[in-house]
Write a protein that binds this DNA or RNA. Structure first.
Lengths: 210, 210
DNA sequence: CCTACCGATCGGTAGG
DNA sequence: CCTACCGATCGGTAGG
């Protein structure tokens, strides 16, 4: 077991991970080179990689550090809100705070990494999939609670709802970053409200024969 | 003007672009190196890059070639279907054929490239944004026709609808590739049907006082 | 944590 | 279209 206290080495390691996380959101996990990281942090390449042994281990630890921050900044605060729909709203809102954090210039690191890693099997991809699965399960679980609380209809599919919310977040990421669409946030809110409305009201009843 | 007939050089150029497109879907546009491309095609690096002068020009032309294929394989067939909702369904269905084409092992090249390029201003990104804008406009225009035809309510927002459909496609790409979710296609269909249902039926009327 | 170094690969050019 | 080559950078190691 490697000690993870507040030793000098551990502080340096955390500083590297924090900087690497922000860099990864803009240049990707492959673009996260040891040389560039070392230069920006004012250390030598060997001094830097000595904390992680390999670039792959660095990448995994960057994802783990990001996951810890996500839990602290997005999930934990939302869990303080009332169960069910209010909590779902809190999680959704917290995502935008996270996505626009100044320390994540390229936005959500998990979304930024997804397309890059989906074709590259290995520990880095596995770490990302695990993090996103946990996020999915949390969303679906929150929807299930909303059903139990009577906020949503009993026949709402929690996994489908989580998938739909995820799609809204992805579209926001693309809209705000690639297209630089000033209405991206409003579009995401409108899509989310439509999802809530569908989950709340009675099942569709055809208004006219087809 | 460079001739683009069926000369020997032009044939070689097209062969390079076709192979590069498939490769880019898995390794990304940065991972598309001249050396690897040359080796896989059995040519020298200089012989290959001579057709394009720079890697950036190659990347732009790969995107242009992909766009041409997208028009031929997705848009043109869908335009033969009846206007309005049927055409919207045809565009949606054709996207999945495109996304799972054997010559695009990593799926839709535009989605694959989006996260990679959103932080890198330049001609390659500009080309991608142009292609995706056209796609958006086509979707929104098709929705507008569906309103005119009376398939959808008059107060449906075409741009919002296009955004929502785009989100469903993004979620499908992630679900099927990163998560390898066997239900990804079914989830996408369910999400799309819900969008159509919302566009078809009367505006929400609260069923109970809040 | 450093300097010094390794082989491999990068995009691209010179010259033919 | 080729061979031969350029300087830069890659991840990583040896040795301290």
């Amino acid at each position: 077991m490697r000690p993870r206290g507040s030793t000098k080495g551990e502080q340096t390691r955390q500083a590297i991970l924090g900087h690497a996380l922000g860099l990864a959101t803009t240049v990707g996990f492959e673009g996260l080179t040891i040389g560039r990281l070392a230069e920006e942090l004012g250390m030598s390449k060997s001094g830097l990689i000595g904390h992680f042994r390999t670039k792959e281990a660095l990448q995994v630890q960057v994802l783990e550090a990001a996951s810890q921050r996500f839990v602290e900044e997005v999930i934990r605060p939302a869990l303080k809100t009332p169960r069910g729909e209010p909590r779902l709203r809190a999680l959704f809102a917290a995502f935008f705070t996270w996505e626009s954090s100044p320390s994540l210039p390229g936005g959500c690191p998990f979304i930024a990494a997804a397309s890059e890693l989906d074709d590259r099997p290995g520990p880095v991809r596995d770490a990302l999939v695990g993090i996103l699965r946990d996020w999915f399960d949390l969303l679906a679980g929150t929807v299930r609670i909303a059903i139990d609380e009577g906020h949503f209809r009993a026949d709402v599919d929690p996994a489908q709802f989580a998938h739909d919310v995820y799609g809204v977040m992805l579209a926001y990421h693309h809209g705000s970053r690639l297209f630089q669409d000033p209405h991206a946030r409003a579009r995401a809110e409108a899509a989310f409200e439509a999802l809530l409305r569908n989950a709340r009201r009675e099942p569709a009843t055809p208004l006219s024969p087809r």
